[in-house]
Nucleic acid binder design. Structure first.
Length: 685
RNA sequence: CGCGGGAUGGAGCAGUUGGUAGCUCGUUGGGCUCAUAACCCAGAGGUCAUUCGUUCGAGUCGGAUUCCCGCAACCA
């Protein structure tokens, strides 16, 4: 069933404004969304490409508190960084706004009100834990206690990470507030819920029957959610950062961030259309006209929100269209490890732009060529270098350079006349005309890596054509033939400028300038008459440059260094503990011992087992420093240890004391030793 | 048996509803010399981790096993 749409609204997940954007975000969401938007624009279709920062929610308030600034300071900082780096990277948003904007507050409130007035929410009063000292209700993550299943003392209110069981805060034994450490009290609080269970029936049909074309990972996850059964979901929170619930009896309540964020797509559209109505028309046509096609680009963590929750909201409101497709990607890893903002294991876009000026397209190319479309993939700097050097430089850039230099040499940079075509010429033409259909075929089903590969094939065809026809040889005997060959080669070059426009916009632009041409339309792709005879080309210029080993080495080193320095920079000494008396201190019996023997404890990565000479017959101590010391290096050294420590079993070994060590900012443990040799067994104090 | 993800030629990845295993890079040999030592051609290289099963037929479905990677645990 072919659906006819007049226009397309493309959204890309709103980045959360508590950190800069990294390559994982780009590969998963922004690069594919941008390729798609550019492709449709090039085809002359009516397109709107929406982006913006997501600026509410608890993590931002936590980060603000930690840095001693306001949440607004945090979001202002990161919104600025993110917006600027997107611009520089060539993500062609029609609008990039933010959820803290006035217009968004109005739209989100309005949406809530409409659904409320239609009876689309249910109201429920529950008892929830409240921290009386901090004067706030506690989110699930901010309550810890003993897990009722496995007895782990540090289970969270939503999940015990020791046994994996998911919990309710009320399941915890001896709950504590993670903010103050006090025992929280139960207090009544009222919240509004979106009854997803009431939407289950139409969602089931809409996704499982009407959208079988969705990517398997997306379809599969939706199916599994639907099969588990949907439950009402709270749309409000007790918090002071966010959009106030627009009702009279709702003091201190804000819209839950997942409810507020996707509405940002709509408010950003409204902001744009209100500012430029002559260009974009009324915002409603992008969201309420059934002839508009809505496409959400997201990462896999967002599938449920965009396929189930947000559609349920739109349906509950009543006047909106639903997404036609949700092409979600998997995750990108970095050098074999999961990308992590908190561990600073990432390549940050803003830093890449500084380290590799003018090389936006290289990153775009690599991220697309290795996009995590069907499973998690790995980004390595080595691969980045190889793809640049042996694909972009050697195939694409080199072909352009060859065609340009040859034309310069034999025809003073003027496009030569095309003459009689040989069979081989016709065969080559036939091949490259197919490229258009192939690229389109893949772009239409969101397979960007395959689409880009097809575009690259055009350059391969060009190289092969030159190698087979050998214009540098025919130039010695037959200038007319040489002219025909170079004319065709230049036509291929011009076609490359169109084919790569969605993928590598900076390069396409540069290529057009070298060829001295204006912008193209996608329909012209496949044409053999893009450049006219006699047209003057500009001086050849390299499209891409080789990236040398030392540059790559430096990036890898930087990755390791930033990780380390970040840990050190963030280090703050712990607060000084409660005072103790001299007597209390004297109760601790700290002594110097000599290590007689030291071995790894089997099946534990962190434990070392020591045999210590304490001057009193020796003792066994187990210590968690295996990651930082080799057992054999320690034998014979003197260490300080607690001698009257309560014995404790570790992995089945009784440890009689504790070896003292200092923990460095990065977690590295350093053993404390006397700085001159002393008699074994003497006291420290 | 803690939870989850994976295992396809040297590396990185594709393999749609089961029907002779593909792509890019690398590698070997050759060609070319216009080109950023780039380009073109030919070749080598895989029992699709192992194993049992369903089937006329399985990389593709089901069970078992092994190994790897995250997280967790051990770190008084």
């Amino acid at each position: 069933m072919e659906k006819k749409f007049k226009r397309t609204t493309i959204t890309s997940a709103l980045p959360y404004a508590n950190g800069p954007v990294h390559i994982g975000h780009l590969a998963g969401v922004y690069v594919p969304a941008d390729i798609y938007a550019r492709y449709l624009r090039l085809k002359g279709e009516d397109v709107l490409f929406i982006g913006g920062s997501d600026e509410h929610g608890v993590p931002i308030t936590i980060k603000a508190k930690k840095e001693g600034v306001t949440p607004q300071d945090i979001v202002d900082r990161y919104h600025g960084i993110i917006k600027k780096s997107f611009e520089e990277f060539g993500i062609s948003f029609d609008v990039y706004s933010r959820t803290s904007s006035k217009i968004h507050h109005e739209v989100a409130s309005g949406m809530f009100k409409t659904i409320y007035e239609k009876g689309g929410f249910i109201e429920q009063t529950n008892e929830q834990y409240y921290d009386e000292t901090a004067q706030q209700f506690l989110a699930d993550r901010y309550i810890t206690g003993k897990c009722p299943h496995c007895g782990n003392e540090n289970a969270y209110g939503d999940q015990c990470e020791a046994c994996g069981t998911s919990l309710n805060p009320t399941d915890l034994i001896n709950p504590k507030s993670a903010i103050t450490g006090n025992a929280p009290v139960m207090r009544e609080t009222k919240h509004w819920y979106l009854p997803l269970d009431q939407h289950e029936e139409w969602l089931r049909k809409w996704i499982l029957e009407d959208h079988k074309e969705w990517k398997t990972n997306v379809y599969g996850q939706c199916k599994s959610w639907l099969d588990m059964g949907l439950h009402p979901r709270a749309v409000s929170r007790d918090l002071d950062w966010g959009i106030p619930v627009p009702l009279k009896n709702a003091e201190g309540k804000v819209l839950y961030v997942w409810f507020d964020a996707p509405i940002g797509y709509i408010s950003n559209t409204k902001e744009l259309c209100d500012n430029q109505p002559e260009k974009f028309g009324k915002w409603e046509k992008w969201w309420k006209d059934p002839e508009t096609r809505l496409v959400h680009f997201i990462g896999k963590d967002n599938i449920v929100f965009h396929c189930i929750v947000f559609p349920a909201m739109l349906k509950a409101e009543g006047s909106y269209i639903l997404p036609d497709n949700v092409p979600a990607n998997e995750f990108l890893n970095l050098e074999g490890d999961k990308i992590s903002t908190s561990r600073n294991w990432a390549v940050w876009l803003n830093e890449y732009l500084v380290d590799f000026p003018g090389k936006q397209d290289v990153l775009r190319y690599v991220l697309t060529a290795n996009a995590p479309e069907t499973k998690d993939n790995d980004f390595t700097w080595k691969d980045f270098q190889t793809r640049n050097n042996s694909e972009l430089v050697a195939i694409f850039g080199n072909f352009i350079n060859r065609a340009m230099v040859l034309t310069q040499k034999y025809f003073d940079g003027k496009v030569p006349a095309i003459g009689e075509l040989t069979n081989y010429d016709r065969q080559t033409l036939a091949e490259f005309i197919n490229v258009k259909a192939d690229v389109e075929k893949y772009l239409d089903i969101f397979r960007f890596r395959d689409a880009q590969k097809e575009a690259m094939n055009l350059a391969r065809i060009g190289n092969k054509y030159l190698a087979d026809t050998e214009p540098w040889k025919t130039a010695k005997t037959d200038m007319a033939r040489t002219a025909t060959i170079l004319n065709l080669a230049l036509q291929i070059a011009a076609n490359l400028a169109i084919a790569f426009e969605p993928f590598l916009p900076f390069t396409a632009d540069k290529l057009r300038k070298i060829l001295g041409l204006n912008s193209f339309n996608w329909k012209q792709l496949g044409s053999t008459q893009l450049i006219e005879e006699g047209h003057q080309l500009n001086a050849p210029e390299l499209l891409f440059e080789k990236i040398e080993d030392d540059v790559i080495e430096a990036q890898i080193q930087k990755l390791l260094n930033t990780k380390k320095t970040n840990e050190l920079d963030n280090y703050k000494p712990d607060e000084v503990k409660e005072q103790v008396s001299f007597d209390a201190f004297m109760k601790m019996d700290i002594r110097v011992g000599t290590i007689l023997d030291c071995q790894r404890v089997p099946k534990a990565d962190k434990l070392l087992q020591f045999k210590i000479d304490d001057g009193m017959g020796g003792r066994t101590i187990v210590s968690g420093i295996a990651k930082y010391y080799n057992p054999e290096d320690l034998i014979g050294k003197q260490v300080c240890f607690m001698a009257n420590f309560e014995p404790r079993k570790l992995k089945g070994i009784v440890s009689e004391g504790m070896i003292l060590s200092a923990e460095d900012a990065d977690g590295r443990l350093v053993i404390i030793s006397p700085n001159d040799t002393v008699k074994t067994g003497v006291n420290v104090g």
